[in-house]
Nucleic acid binder design. Structure first.
Length: 346
DNA sequence: AATGCAGACAACCGCCTCTAC
DNA sequence: CGTAGAGGCGGTTGTCTGCAT
């Protein structure tokens, strides 16, 4: 990866490439407890041999519990196409209007699926009827380059455009078949109400993203039930961290894989077995697993009105969950020595 | 059954922006 | 006001996987 480029920061001795389940669990555990106020310092404090950027990317693109996974629905694809027509390659802004989808995911979907499809359909339209403007922009509008030709790769030069000239660029965008105002109306009809943004913009460029409103705390990260061992390792004192393995304490709803025996250990988990259920648990925590009735430990659990096999739905219904975030007062940071006790050689 | 190819996905990189000092 | 550091963004690339030959 990244041939011939100098590393963005000193990465001597740091891991690269795919993340291991153990690294994932460390990151999840750490963020669940301490939040991510400082990405640079996080890997060291969490005992991860990764750079902060890598941790951030991993969390945002893969580990964040509010992510939708799986294929894009037709509706999402349609929305994406429309948003891209208006915004160009502003993946983060597009992502802000597609709850549960990340900019990276959207970018990949666009580049692998939709770009070709749009180009094909545009070419078809161009052939069939030339009543309206037939120029089609496939890629992002660039301040310096053409906004109209279908290029396969926009150079990095367009990364410099700002929200200021975005508006002027939007004026130049020639949207095939639909004029801009109508396009925007269509978009707002397509995007679920809770994701509607400022009326003058398909998606506010301001942070936080427009998907958040009072009734929809999508960005409030739900608390993941971390594998108890990890908490036990991280958290020597019993401070009531959910998931602490105690007899009678509900573990993760899927905890039949490694039940608590009441002694703070996994009765069925041998060293080898542990690897299996650890990985299995990770899959489940990543939203790849269905049952989540007790996804988190609530003193007074709300009955789930909808299907329980959709974590995202559950988040919406259950509302915000207390979790350490960068906005909260951070707890005392753990020493790296403590966290590095987490076994990595599972 | 083996091999090659193309598509899909995850991760890295450098640049840009924002914010604190 | 200038500077440095950190976070965020978009482009690019390596690897994996499924399919065709």
């Amino acid at each position: 990866m990244g041939k011939g480029r100098a590393p963005c920061c000193a990465k001597v001795g740091l891991n690269k490439g795919s993340w291991t389940p153990e690294e994932d669990m460390r990151l999840i555990a750490y963020i669940q407890k301490y939040g991510h106020a400082n990405w640079r310092a996080l890997p060291k404090q969490a005992g991860l041999l990764r750079c902060g950027k890598s941790c951030r990317l991993r969390w945002i693109n893969y580990l964040r519990p509010d992510l939708k996974r799986g294929n894009f629905t037709a509706e999402e694809e349609e929305t994406l196409i429309k948003l891209h027509n208006m915004l160009g390659n502003k993946w983060s802004k597009i992502a802000a209007c597609l709850p549960g989808r990340t900019d990276n995911e959207i970018k990949n979907v666009w580049n692998t699926h939709l770009k070709k499809r749009v180009a094909d359909s545009a070419a078809g339209e161009k052939k069939n009827k030339c009543k309206k403007k037939t120029t089609v922009r496939v890629d992002a509008p660039s301040p310096s380059s053409s906004t109209t030709t279908a290029t396969t790769n926009s150079s990095s030069a367009d990364s410099g455009d700002t929200s200021n000239n975005e508006e002027t660029e939007l004026d130049k965008i020639e949207i095939p078949m639909l004029d801009f105002a109508f396009e925007l109306d269509m978009l707002l009809d397509t995007v679920p109400p809770e994701t509607h943004c400022a009326p003058t913009s398909p998606c506010s460029s301001a942070s936080p993203p427009c998907v958040v409103d009072d009734d929809n705390e999508l960005l409030d990260l739900p608390e993941i039930d971390i594998v108890p061992e990890l908490w036990n390792i991280i958290d020597d004192d019993d401070d009531g961290i959910p998931g602490a393995c105690a007899e009678g304490t509900p573990q993760a709803p899927w905890s039949n894989a490694a039940p608590c025996d009441g002694n703070g250990t996994e009765a069925a988990a041998t060293a080898d077995d542990g690897k299996d259920w650890w990985l299995e648990d990770l899959e489940r925590e990543l939203g790849l697993w269905g049952p989540i009735e007790d996804y988190q430990y609530q003193p007074d659990p709300q009955p789930l009105p909808g299907p329980v096999d959709d974590p995202l739905s559950y988040y919406f219904e259950a509302g915000p969950v207390v979790v350490a975030t960068s906005s909260l007062e951070p707890e005392p940071q753990p020493s790296a020595a403590v966290l590095t006790d987490i076994p990595m050689g599972l």
